[in-house]
Simulated scan of single mutants.
Amino acid sequence: MLLQSSVDITGGGLLALLVTFLLATLFYAVTLHLAATFFIGDVPSQRAATVAPVPALVSLLLQQYGIGSGIVSPGVGVLITIGATLLADAIAISFVYRLKWSSAIPLTLLHFTFAAVLGIALGNLFGFI
């Protein structure tokens, strides 16, 4: 008889990926709206909701199939995932908010900063970190 060292409640199936995608999209939408309001001023929240699925999808797909495939080391995989997510976020922000690259890049970096700070704070609050 084999003992399982860790229990995965979700089973890692399609439902778990869908719920994770929806939560990541919601998180990215909230943090992008905060960053855009801080950077641009009064903007409709629908724009953030339009952009948010793009970085959520890119980051989840690369985490699920990029790092786990074993092609690159986990450290390099994390850097690739962050870089690709930032690039996808910048392209979506530039397109949806109709910004030039000179404005889209700072907003993307501000979005990344807001998401990192809020993610670390929530992780500490709920005991994940």
Rank of each mutant, 00 (worst) to 15 (best):
S102N: 08
A116D: 01
L99E: 00
T10L: 08
A56L: 14
G11N: 00
I80P: 09
V96I: 13
I129L: 13
P74H: 12
T31G: 04
P44S: 05
I105M: 05
L86H: 07
L23G: 15
F112W: 01
I71N: 12
I71E: 09
T81I: 08
T85I: 03
L125G: 00
V54S: 03
T20I: 14
A35M: 09
L86N: 02
S102R: 12
G75C: 08
L99Q: 02
R47P: 01
Q4G: 15
V54H: 12
G70E: 11
F27E: 02
G70Q: 08
L125I: 01
G68I: 01
G68N: 13
S45F: 13
F27L: 07
S94N: 10
L15H: 08
S102M: 10
V76E: 12
V117M: 06
V117S: 08
G123R: 05
S102C: 04
Y65N: 04
G77F: 00
S94H: 04
V96M: 08
A48C: 02
F27Y: 12
S59T: 15
S6E: 11
G68V: 04
L17V: 04
A92N: 07
G70C: 07
I9G: 00
L3K: 13
I9F: 14
S59F: 14
L86C: 09
S59I: 15
